[in-house]
Design a protein around this nucleic acid. Structure first.
Lengths: 166, 166
DNA sequence: ATCAATGCAAAGGTTTTGCAAAAAT
DNA sequence: ATTTTTGCAAAACCTTTGCATTGAT
């Protein structure tokens, strides 16, 4: 997101352009694809502006979510997380890309990806229930490649140990 | 979920069968398809067992989640919610049904449904990343039928008012 | 000059934890 | 008899809020 575009967005909503708001935007831009907590962003921000307060971070994140500059995500680990929301190239409608995440249940790694395979489901909801889907969020839980390999090795080791004992 | 099956599950994990655990299971069974908070369950439980403590509710819910008897869901409204997780009839593998929710952004109504339209996506993740999906969670945000009708009426009213003024 | 935004500290609300007493195996 | 679980209260935790001060327009 361009700084000038952001300033414009703020002005449209009668919000002021402050040092702190620009800093948080900059930090989010410096960490694309990451899923930062408010605390993470606070720590990053303090390096550039030691006076900044945690409450300001929270308030700024709220503003950024309302302006649809960032997305709020929840991996149920006790923290709300934020990531820069990419707009689609779609010029006519300001449709937002959907945030899909695959979360490894063993190491916690998060893979982000985009794919619109829910169109059928959304169409059927509209037809059956009259429910119009505007946005969606998909979380896939499972095991990443390296954890699967580690688990396989542990399993082999376990079997060997058992064989020794048997 | 049958009581005896639950008792068996507890015993397998060396957990004790207590009055409180059986009560919470019973309450979840009495409210299928609902999305109860810990506080909701506490209030229901106190009607049948006024001595029960909130901490016990939280601890019991953790146990039920670990035993995969209930699912933990988060609608980002500040509460973690719980619902009875239905097992599929799939006898061979103890695969769980996936919990999909359509949440109305205007009135907060939640529609639950099942549909496995993510198979393609999951297959592609395995092929491309080596990520094995075990469970998934889908949240659709939008507007339900009655809210869409209300919004349409409000829109019409607004237009009429504008016409009068013009 | 006006009104919004900040920083600090305190409060808020949900969830977890420590510990002695009670209950389950 | 042993070990887990409970209930209570206190603590922990992330997040929000009140308010005087600072900063943006």
């Amino acid at each position: 997101m361009d700084q000038s575009v952001f300033k414009q967005l703020l002005k449209e909503k009668n919000l002021k352009v402050t040092r702190q708001r620009m800093l948080v935007l900059e930090l989010m831009g410096d960490h694309p694809g990451e899923h930062l907590t408010a605390e993470d962003i606070y720590e990053l921000a303090r390096k550039k502006d030691p006076e900044i307060g945690l409450a300001t971070i929270y308030r700024t994140l709220q503003v950024l979510v309302e302006l649809q500059v960032i997305d709020k995500i929840n991996f149920d680990d006790g923290f709300v997380r934020y990531e820069l929301g990419q707009m689609t190239g779609d010029d006519s409608e300001e449709r937002r890309h959907h945030h899909h995440h695959a979360i490894c249940s063993r190491c916690g790694a998060v893979y982000s990806f985009e794919e619109d395979l829910l169109d059928n489901l959304e169409r059927s909801l509209l037809e059956r229930l009259g429910f119009l889907v505007v946005d969606h969020e998909v979380k896939l839980f499972g095991y990443c490649k390296s954890c699967r390999e580690k688990m396989k090795n542990e399993d082999l080791k376990l079997r060997r140990d058992l064989e020794v004992k048997v």
